[in-house]
């Protein structure tokens, strides 16, 4: 190589060439990236029928639409007006309760399935190669197919109603949680696992006593997080007929019952926020109180 024998002047020249090379390569990458981005942008604009004119024409529509949904609440008799706005509060609350219950039952069922197979889906724990493969692929499939697609299919099979929604939520949750649980399992301390195997415990017992106590607090935390997500999901599944408040929401949208739209959306927002807050407190409690309680 020339570097070893190069004098001072050569070193500068060498640096210059290298620097130029590097810059050229960087410029090339940047240019290529920009070109690809421009192509994607152009193609998306065409395929996506992006039309600034239409958007501009639509903006007043959107504002008008939002404006119409706002309830009329006068300063003179606000309570009466709010009562009128939420004229069907009894029905909506019941539907909202159904929605939360759908999220609850769906999360629980999904967690159960994930719990059952997550040990198979962990590379360090799987008893056999084929069960590992099967669990991994199963979870992958369950979480990649959107909930709404499952819901469409189940509504077709079981008819409209919350059961289809619960099934859809359960399957999707099983996939999402299964992957997370398996990752937690793969970080479990291997020493107790060794000890239990050496004591003659079977695979199931080893999972129960050496792995589960280590991972359970994490599982619960992920489960609660999933519950929050699932209540949101449950509130829209009704759009395809899978029960809950979403069905009512879609109905009032299509019937142009404007103030009802805002009433229901606000109800969903409040419920979801309350559940988020409650779950966050539970999760913090779980982390702070330590896993001692969770395991005994």
């Amino acid at each position: 190589m020339a570097i070893a024998v190069a004098g001072g002047g050569d070193a500068v020249a060498l640096f210059e060439t290298r620097h130029r090379d590097l810059r050229r390569r960087k410029a090339l990458t940047t240019g290529l990236g920009a070109l690809l981005f421009a192509l994607a942008f152009g193609a998306s604009a065409i395929v996506g029928e992006v039309d600034p004119g239409r958007f501009a024409a639509g903006v007043p529509n959107i504002l008008d639409y939002v404006h119409r949904t706002l309830p009329e609440i006068s300063a003179r008799q606000p309570l009466t007006d709010i009562g009128e706005w939420y004229w069907a509060i009894d029905i909506w609350l019941l539907l909202m309760l159904d929605t939360v219950l759908m999220g609850f039952v769906g999360t629980l069922a999904g967690t159960a399935v994930a719990l059952l197979f997550c040990f198979h889906a962990a590379a360090n724990l799987a008893p056999t190669r084929w069960s590992f493969w099967l669990a991994r692929r199963g979870f992958e499939f369950a979480r990649t197919v959107p909930e709404l697609v499952f819901a469409l299919i189940f509504v077709f099979a079981f008819g409209p109603g919350p059961f289809a929604g619960v099934l859809a939520i359960a399957i999707h949750s099983a996939g999402a949680l299964g992957k997370l649980f398996a990752e937690v399992n793969e970080n479990a301390d291997p020493r107790p696992i060794d000890a239990l195997a050496a004591a003659g415990a079977g695979w199931t017992e080893t999972m129960r006593f050496a792995v589960l106590p280590q991972v359970l607090p994490n599982f619960l935390s992920y489960g609660l997080l999933r519950f929050e997500i699932n209540v949101r999901a449950a509130s829209v599944l009704g759009i395809v007929g899978a029960g809950g408040i979403g069905e009512e929401l879609y109905l009032v949208v299509r019937r142009f019952l404007y103030s009802d739209i805002s009433a229901i959306v606000l109800l969903i927002l409040i419920t979801v926020s309350l559940i988020d807050m409650g779950c966050e407190r539970l999760r913090h409690g779980l982390i702070e109180a330590g896993p001692a309680r969770a395991t005994r």
Binding site: D189, R191, P192, D194, A195, L196, A198, A199, G200, A201, G202, E205, F209, A210, P213, Q214, P291, A292, T295, R296
Partner: peptide, 25 residues
């Protein structure tokens, strides 16, 4: 029965359960 350098107890379980684990088989 095996005894390990790092004890290999299940840290999050109580002592009693750790001992009872020896009965699993």
């Amino acid at each position: 029965a095996m005894i390990f350098q790092q004890f290999n107890l299940v840290q999050r379980l109580d002592v009693l359960t750790n001992v009872l684990v020896g009965r699993l088989n």
